[in-house]
Every structure is written in C-alpha cells, then in structure tokens.
Write a protein that binds this DNA or RNA. Sequence first.
DNA 1: AACGGTTATAACTATAATGGTTACAACGAA
DNA 2: TTCGTTGTAACCATTATAGTTATAACCGTT
Lengths: 166, 166
Amino acid sequence: MNEGTNSNLFGLTKLYKVTILVITVVVILKQISTRFSMAVHILSLITTSTNEVTGDFIAGSVNTNPVVIRRIMGMLKKAGLLDVRPGVGGAFLLKAPEDITLLDIYHAVHVIEGNRLFGVHQDSNVRCQVGRNIESILQFELNEAQSAMEQRLAQTTLSKLIARFE
Amino acid sequence: MNEGTNSNLFGLTKLYKVTILVITVVVILKQISTRFSMAVHILSLITTSTNEVTGDFIAGSVNTNPVVIRRIMGMLKKAGLLDVRPGVGGAFLLKAPEDITLLDIYHAVHVIEGNRLFGVHQDSNVRCQVGRNIESILQFELNEAQSAMEQRLAQTTLSKLIARFE
DNA sequence: AACGGTTATAACTATAATGGTTACAACGAA
DNA sequence: TTCGTTGTAACCATTATAGTTATAACCGTT
C-alpha cells in the first residue's frame, strides 16, 4: 500500500483519527455443486438462442470462465444431452427440451458420488446389535428420501422451466 | 495491530466509521457427511442400551475415534436431543425416541448449512434472458425437491428405525 | 496452405470440509 | 487424590470445487 499518498484515499484527509470497523461474516454453504445449476443454464441457453452458442458466449451469460463451461459441456456430451461442432463451434441438443428433465441434468454432471446423496459410515462393530443393523436399515430410509427428491426433479423438464422465463 | 500509529491507517479518520462486510460463500459437497449417519447410530445406541453409554463405548460400536463421537454428541446436545453427564459420563435422550425424526437429527448435525441443499451459481448476466431468469426459477424447483426429501426424512422416527433391528 | 475462431484437455492454484488423531484441562464419584 | 470421562484445541492427510493459464487439435474461410 503506497504510504505517503494515502491522504486522499477515498477522498478523505488525515486530519482525523482512524476508526475502521471491519466485520467479516463468513458463510459456509455445504451444498450440491453449482455445476448442476450451471448445466441447467447452459442447456437453457442452447434451447432458447437462435444464434450459434459457443462456450465463450455461454460463459458471458453465466459470468464465469469459458473452461468451466466447456468442462460441464463435456459432461453433458457424455450423457448424450448435447453435441458440439468441433473447430467451427456451436452446441445443439440431442434430445427435445420436452424430454430432458432436471434429473437427467443432475445425473449428467455427477454432482454426487455413486448415486448416493447420503454418505453412510462403514465398518460398524458387528458384535453390537446397533452396529449390525444400522447401515442397511438406515440406508434404506436414506434411499427413500433421496428418491423423493429425485422424483421431484424428474417432474420438471427443460421446456417447462424455460416456459416460465419472462 | 500497531497502536499509536493508527492515525494514518489507510489515511482514514475517526470521523468516518467504515464497515466492510465480507461474505465468503464456499460450495462443497460430494455426499452428505457421514456425521449424519453416525449421529443416528449414536442416538440408536443410547436408546437401546441398558448400560451407561460413554463416548468410548459408542466409538467402539461405530468403529471410529472417540473424539469424532464427542464432536457429534456436542452437536446433538446443542440441538437439545441429548445430554451428557460430565465427569462421570454417560448420555441420555432429552426427547422420547418416538418424537425424534431423522430430519431432526439431520438438522442437528448441520450437514447442510443455510438450509439449502442445492448450490445455485450467482451473478448471471442480467442482459441475457436466461441469465435474468435462471436463478430464481431454478431455485424454486430445487427447493421443491429438497422439501420432498426432508418430508421423507421427517416420516421416520428413531423408535421406528430401532423397531426394525434384528 | 495459412489464418482465425473454436473446442478439448492438462496442469496448476487457493480454499475449505471431512474424518481421524494427539494432547490436555476440567469434571465428579469412589 | 485418583481414575475414568467429557470437552476442546490443534494438527494432519485427503479430497472436491471453481477458476486460471497454456497448448494442441479441429475446421471453414481466405
């Protein structure tokens, strides 16, 4: 920081004493990766745009680095949702937006591991009644909860989502 | 912090109180932490065991380090689900197992912060139709999906779970 | 055949959560 | 006082994310 010339920082002068109150609020969110929402954004753009849709163009709309976009597009390609013209550029859907659900996109970007939203601890002590039973019985309940979420995601298609844009 | 020489800190004066609010948002999650399933394990043990239930005993059943267990028990204490006798040791429930749902436990261990399972990217380009709309419209759908999952978790109580142990 | 815009990918970074671990102070009953 | 226990602090290795730079490959146009 350039001392000596600090007298006009923020247009203020050094006539007065300093009181700076710095409040730092750190909000830690442990969440499903934004890769998912970015992927929805990407597919929405491809669906609605009439022009060529390049990685750079999408990056401008998502407001991030083009490489981040291409990485996600690579996942969407592997899932068979879109394809990209190499060299010349431009992406297009491989399925109708009526046939692409949020669940399809969710799965495509591998936002969770092994299709298991909930991690369950392993290697419980089998000599204990709880230890013997907890993993499988709890896993069943958690699968049910995960299914409930995924079924809701499956109800919304890309075209339904876009229809609500204003 | 150098007291006494703070009069020229940043060239500001005591006439001005500067409040800087820094919000850091970190998005991480591959799977919901096993803290949740361990917490269910812990509460199941306390419910079913006739003897004293110490951190070391639980650690033996979960098959992990006692400190990991005590950390989770601390969270369950803060949530009002159990209490621990300091010194002498041993944990006991503060609510009946019929009144503790998986959702209560899920919330207690702060496995998701801010009550938002899905991260949604911010700062999309508002000059683009998709960019303007995607965040709010997608967030609504994701909230619905999250609710579906949580409602399912709320349907299972600790006593129901334990009743299925063999 | 060279050029320019594009895609694909490798490599690297900073950040931070997790689960495990050691260490130690505080607590309370025998 | 002693001993088993609780409650934390501190540290570690591992891992995923999002961003970044750099580079090779691709393909239509000139």
